[in-house]
Design a protein around this nucleic acid. Structure first.
Lengths: 237, 237
DNA sequence: AAGTGGTCTAGACCACGGG
DNA sequence: CCGTGGTCTAGACCACTTC
């Protein structure tokens, strides 16, 4: 079940809020009490309530906006278990400097594979982006991404010169479903040149599809040279 | 590009610490200044420095222990959460026939890498197994596994001719922690022959470590040709 | 035993953004 | 405009761990 260790005050608040959400007292989209009220109710300082809510927001349980207050996140799913990896954070977590570069941007009809992943009809167009993510000036990830303009029309107006597509999407479109497929491929000449590895080198390919109730949002292929992912899971449940 | 937003004090501290780490001033294992000192140096409150260090610890950049101080994390790469393990029986789930074959079984001292994964001292021995898993008579997975005999002494009496090590372990030893590391490698001649693929073919390598409160149990390397993993995540929990 | 992180408080000012 | 979150402070006590 959940933590019974209600020793620290901010955890008490956090657990209590989660409990109300779990119980259905506060449903997705509902406004929850503001920090000040929570602090009063729990007899703690506002900073304590703040930390509880901040962590819940980081975990995706609630969404917060100034002036508008905190609401239970719409996506029923807990991002706590399945978070979308963020390249920039992963890289910075290793102590390396993160750099992003856009290689290509065009609006075109996707090839058959990408088209089916996005659920588009033949003839429909989408936004294609190709970009490179560097860790300390070394290519770390080559990204090939299609964005469904029907789901994210604002993308057509974004240059993606400065912000990476993943961040841009995360900030704008809530997803409710994600699928990852991981495989290994030999580097094509095209990929090898960009990743600065020998042709034929084994690359880790991660394909990701994201969608919500309304539409398929994006399909992306990430290519990584060498070692990459570390998935860890504790033994609960 | 990293954050230019040095507006907030705790981010200033965080960035500054990361910068020192990146620059190599503070190397993995090094002690970094304590909160109090950082607060003084940056002219902020200790809670502000605390938040900076707390976030760095959450991101895996540093490790903190009471009384012992904060150190630059030793492990350079990790992060990115995914899902919990999967079962080998998924071959059957695809409708293919599953077959298992033991290729090798011996008790020996593991090489350095495996030894450290199992947490053994030089000279200690462990049980090594090599086996192949087939889907419809096609090699699907090549498994190289070390079992810590201190944690699972019964394994020494099991032939593993008929039952695959994963199942055997699952039925006997409850694990509380699992770690997976996924990467891509080019097929060595040895692996290529057994998997019946060309040498140099890109293979998906999954390393798995399993342990419980008492001891490290097993370390396994799984090699897969071609496509392999499919993780999907909706909302649950 | 003592030093360090972990947390807490009761105030405060600011910035963003909904109304 | 003005309420809400975002952050900050200058103290404080506690808990854990190493010494």
């Amino acid at each position: 079940m959940s933590d019974r260790a209600k020793q620290t005050a901010y955890l008490k608040v956090k657990e209590a809020v989660m409990e109300r959400i779990r119980a259905g007292d506060w449903k997705p989209g509902d406004l929850i009490p503001k920090e000040e009220d929570l602090a009063r109710d729990f007899g703690c300082a506002r900073m304590t309530a703040n930390r509880a809510l901040r962590e819940l927001a980081e975990e995706g349980v609630i969404e917060r906006r100034k002036r508008a207050g905190s609401r239970v996140a719409l996506q029923t799913g807990r991002n706590a278990l399945f978070e979308i990896p963020r390249v920039d954070k992963e890289i910075e977590a290793t102590g390396a400097a993160y750099r992003y570069r856009l290689l290509e941007r065009k609006i075109a009809e996707p090839a058959a594979l990408a088209r089916s992943r996005l659920g588009l009809e033949p003839g429909e167009k989408a936004l294609k982006l190709v970009c490179l993510h560097y860790a300390n000036e070394t290519p770390f990830q080559l990204e090939e991404r299609w964005i469904n303009l029907a789901a994210a029309p604002e993308a057509a107006a974004e240059s993606f010169q400065e912000i990476n597509p993943n961040l841009w999407l995360l900030e704008r479109l809530p997803w409710s479903e994600v699928e990852h497929v991981v495989s290994a491929v030999n580097a094509s000449r095209w990929a090898a040149e960009r990743l600065e590895v020998p042709e034929g080198e084994a690359l880790l390919l991660v394909e990701r599809r994201t969608w919500n109730e309304a539409a398929r949002i994006t399909y992306a292929r990430f290519l990584h040279p060498g070692r990459f992912y570390s998935l860890s899971a504790g033994g609960q449940r």
